[in-house]
């Protein structure tokens, strides 16, 4: 891993955040298997370093973040209440959307987290719109616009890149290249697999970056976020990571699109193990302390799950709330 100037406290923070996300995501899978969450649920296991590195480079409470349906980690890093996130994932009244959204549709607008979207590519212009809004008002906010390698083929994404460059929107497009779009491998869906080049035709600054070494990610992210804040122009990055889990909690057929050997090989890139190795080697943290931290978050995740589970299901009468701001729709069957 890269030698760096991070303080021991920051190093511990990144480690803790990655461990915390993984514990939370493992709990989400368990909740799904127990039938306490339904529909589609997608975990971030294996990809933790990307969100940790990038979101720690933001001014939390000021900057904006938007992503697709693989959206549990981002709000947690922005200070959202994990119990309210888990309650939403379980479809409960105390969730951020009172059970209306679910795993794919988490939002904490107050913290600057704008979701949480289920249509592949569909949120990418919305993210550019957030940047449009802040620039219009003369604010120096930065928007992180996360999307997948599969989403990077969407027509609306190309339209968005053109306008973001044309209108110099302070938006960072982060293509998380985890090598798969559901069951389709990168080379079967993209004619040119170097997705960073998507920025080239629009004259947008673009780079392909690592997404597994949290310290490297953090360094790149800080540099680029600072540049975008200062210059108020868009930037595109392709971040190389890997999804260890199936596409979603319902995907039990990973063997249809990748081999066991390939998965085993990918495990060597595990961002958490890599960080542990670094912390040990540089005498930042002992094996015992890391063990204690991992246990701490196991217990924490259990507590989060229990607290969320204590929240009631929404009342059927709530079904008409929030269709409009100022009226109710036609009611009844």
């Amino acid at each position: 891993m890269k030698p760096n100037q991070e303080s021991p406290a920051d190093l511990e923070l990144y480690y803790r955040q990655m461990v915390q996300i993984r514990a939370f995501e493992n709990r989400c899978n368990a909740v799904y298997r127990a039938g306490k969450a339904g529909g589609y649920l997608h975990v971030y296991i294996g990809m933790e370093a990307t969100a940790v590195g990038w979101i720690n480079s933001l001014k939390i409470g000021w900057d904006y973040v938007i992503t697709a349906y693989r959206d549990h980690a981002h709000p947690m890093l922005m200070g959202s209440d994990p119990v309210k996130l888990m309650a939403e994932i379980m479809g409960r009244k105390d969730g951020y959307s009172h059970g209306k959204g679910g795993s794919m549709h988490l939002y904490d607008i107050e913290k600057g987290f704008f979701g949480g979207w289920g249509i592949v590519g569909g949120h990418t212009p919305l993210g550019a719109g957030l940047a449009f809004g802040s620039k219009y008002k003369g604010e120096d906010r930065v928007t992180l616009n996360f999307l997948g390698d599969g989403a990077a083929n969407a027509g609306v994404f190309f339209e968005t890149l053109n306008m973001a460059a044309l209108w110099e929107l302070p938006c960072i497009f982060i293509i998380e290249n985890n090598e798969f779009a559901m069951g389709t491998r990168l080379e079967y869906h993209a004619a040119d697999t170097e997705l960073a080049k998507r920025g080239y035709p629009f004259g947008m600054k673009h780079e392909r970056l690592d997404g597994m070494d949290v310290l490297q990610v953090r360094q790149d992210a800080k540099r680029i976020v600072d540049w975008v804040r200062k210059n108020q122009k868009p930037y595109l990055v392709e971040v190389m990571n890997y999804r260890f889990a199936g596409h979603g909690a319902a995907d039990n057929d990973r063997q249809l699109y990748r081999t066991k050997e390939e998965e085993d090989k990918a495990q060597h890139r595990d961002p958490i193990e890599r960080m542990e190795h670094y912390l040990l080697k540089n005498n930042v943290m002992s094996e015992e302390k890391m063990e204690a931290i991992r246990e701490e978050y196991e217990t924490w995740a259990d507590e989060v799950m229990e607290k969320a589970d204590a929240s009631p299901h929404p009342d059927p009468s709530e079904v008409y709330d929030h269709v409009y701001t100022d009226m109710e729709p036609e009611k009844g069957h």
């Binding site: 479809g91 059970g99 209306k100 008409y320």
Partner: peptide
Amino acid sequence: VGGLNVPMPYSRVLELECIPNEAN
């Protein structure tokens, strides 16, 4: 007898409220 005029909610309790059933 039709579906409720709302975006489909995630919660199973609310979802079942929206989809027409035998009782309706």
